[in-house]
């Protein structure tokens, strides 16, 4: 299994209309719920906000990587949303956010080790400026997944 195959097309959305951080987080958590990654939306959202309270998740360059670790995560995964209108978000370079990559991590890390390893490799790719550029210019789901090849 490679990094690309760890991305579920059902949890990728291009050009979301969300207008705020709250709105986009709720939207993404809902996708993760529908895709079967999360079994309790409000519990998982709480975990995401807990992490938000601990430090900035905007990594610069218009990208944010919120994440939550919670027992409501039954299948660790990642969701990617690109935004039609950049939104305000606490960020290392004070730029507005165009891409949100949300990681859902289970409490039981032993049982999901392989999956978490893939997520780690996935996160590593987000440290690569070339990947971020391809993500930002992606027009559809396929182009998003191709950015991680």
């Amino acid at each position: 299994m490679d990094v690309k195959s760890s991305i579920n097309p059902k949890t990728i959305v291009v050009n979301s209309n969300a207008q705020s951080k709250d709105e986009v987080l709720k939207e993404i958590v809902h996708y993760l719920y529908e895709a079967g990654n999360v079994n309790d939306e409000s519990e998982f959202l709480k975990a995401v906000y807990k992490r938000e309270s601990q430090g900035v998740t905007g990594i610069g360059n218009g990208v944010a990587i919120p994440h939550g670790q919670s027992s409501s995560v039954i299948d660790p995964g990642v969701a990617i949303v690109t935004l039609k209108h950049p939104i305000a978000w606490e960020s290392l370079d004070d730029q507005k956010i165009k891409i949100v990559v949300l990681f859902a991590v289970s409490d039981n890390s032993e049982g999901a080790k392989l999956h978490l390893q893939l997520l780690a490799q996935f996160a590593k790719k987000l440290g690569n400026d070339d990947v971020l550029e391809s993500l930002k210019s992606a027009e559809d789901v396929q182009e998003i997944t191709e950015a991680f090849e």
């Binding site: 992490r51 998740t57 990594i59 990587i65 990681f103 997520l119 780690a120 490799q121 440290g127 690569n128």
Partner: peptide
């Protein structure tokens, strides 16, 4: 990093590059 899922690996990649 705190949760050990994202920032750790992004920092690694950025510093390596």
């Amino acid at each position: 990093c705190t949760v050990g899922i994202a920032h750790t690996y992004i920092a690694q990649e950025k510093l390596e590059k």
